[in-house]
Amino acid sequence: TEEYTYTDKEKADRAAKEWANRGYTVTVTQDGPTYRVRVG
């Protein structure tokens, strides 16, 4: 499991979509002003 942190919702959504397109399980959680994209 890897985790990426973004401050921009659009970038987080785009990253999540790209990982999902590659067949990974993706979870996006909002943590205050940041968005965490957990992959795998």
Rank of each mutant, 00 (worst) to 15 (best):
T29N: 05
V28P: 00
T1H: 13
R14V: 11
A16Y: 05
V26C: 03
V39S: 01
P33R: 08
T29E: 11
R38L: 14
D31L: 08
K9G: 06
V37Q: 00
A15Q: 06
R14E: 13
V26L: 02
D13W: 14
A20R: 14
T1M: 13
R14I: 12
K9R: 12
T29I: 14
T5N: 07
Y24V: 04
Q30K: 12
A16S: 05
Y24G: 01
Y4V: 05
T25S: 10
P33H: 12
T25V: 12
K17P: 00
V26H: 00
V28R: 03
G32D: 02
T27G: 04
T1Y: 15
T1W: 15
R36V: 15
K17Q: 13
A12V: 03
E2W: 15
W19N: 01
R22M: 13
T7P: 10
V37I: 08
T34E: 09
P33F: 11
E10F: 09
A16N: 02
T5E: 10
T1D: 11
E18P: 00
E2R: 15
E3I: 12
T5V: 14
T1E: 12
Y6N: 01
P33N: 14
Y4P: 02
K9S: 07
V26F: 02
D31W: 06
T29G: 04
G32Q: 01
P33M: 11
G32K: 01
Y24K: 04
Y24W: 06
E18S: 08
R22Q: 11
A15T: 06
E2T: 15
R22F: 06
Y35M: 03
Y24D: 01
E10Q: 10
G23M: 02
V26S: 03
E2V: 15
V39L: 06
E2F: 15
E3M: 08
V39I: 09
K9D: 03
W19Y: 06
Y24R: 04
T7Q: 10
V37W: 00
E3T: 11
T29R: 07
D13T: 10
A15E: 06
T27I: 10
Y4A: 03
E10S: 10
Y6F: 14
T25P: 06
E2Y: 15
A12I: 01
R22V: 05
E10I: 10
E2A: 14
R38K: 12
R36E: 04
E2Q: 15
K9M: 07
K9V: 06
A20H: 08
P33T: 12
A16T: 04
K9I: 06
T7A: 10
T27R: 06
D8R: 05
R36F: 12
D31P: 01
G40A: 14
V37T: 01
T34F: 15
T29F: 13
G32F: 03
R22Y: 06
E10R: 08
R36Q: 07
V28A: 02
G23W: 02
Y4L: 06
A15D: 07
Y24L: 05
T25W: 11
Y24A: 04
V28L: 07
G40I: 14
D8S: 13
Q30P: 05
G40H: 14
A20N: 07
K17D: 08
T34L: 15
P33S: 13
E3R: 04
K11F: 09
R22W: 07
E10K: 09
G32V: 01
W19V: 02
N21I: 10
A15H: 06
T5I: 14
R22A: 10
R22I: 06
D31E: 12
Y35T: 04
Q30I: 10
T34R: 08
T27P: 00
T29M: 10
R38I: 15
Q30N: 07
K11D: 14
G23T: 01
T29K: 06
E18F: 15
T27N: 07
W19Q: 02
T29Y: 14
R22N: 07
G23Q: 02
T25E: 11
D13P: 00
V26I: 04
Y6S: 02
N21V: 09
V28D: 00
K17M: 12
T5A: 08
A20P: 01
A12E: 00
R36K: 14
V28E: 02
P33A: 12
Q30Y: 07
T7V: 09
E3W: 11
K17T: 11
A15I: 08
T5L: 14
D13G: 06
R22S: 06
T1S: 11
Y4S: 03
D8Y: 04
G32H: 03
K17V: 10
A15R: 04
Y35Q: 01
A15S: 06
T7I: 11
W19P: 00
W19S: 01
R38T: 15
Y4Q: 04
R22E: 06
A20E: 13
A12M: 04
V26E: 00
R36G: 03
R14G: 07
V37P: 00
G40S: 15
T7H: 11
T1A: 12
Y35V: 04
E3S: 06
Y24I: 04
R38W: 12
Q30E: 08
R36N: 07
P33W: 08
Q30M: 10
V39D: 00
Y6E: 01
Y35C: 03
T7W: 13
P33E: 14
Y6R: 00
Y24F: 12
A16D: 01
R38P: 01
W19H: 03
G40P: 04
E3G: 05
R14S: 11
Q30D: 05
Y6I: 02
R36L: 13
Y6L: 02
Q30H: 09
Y24P: 00
V37H: 01
G32E: 02
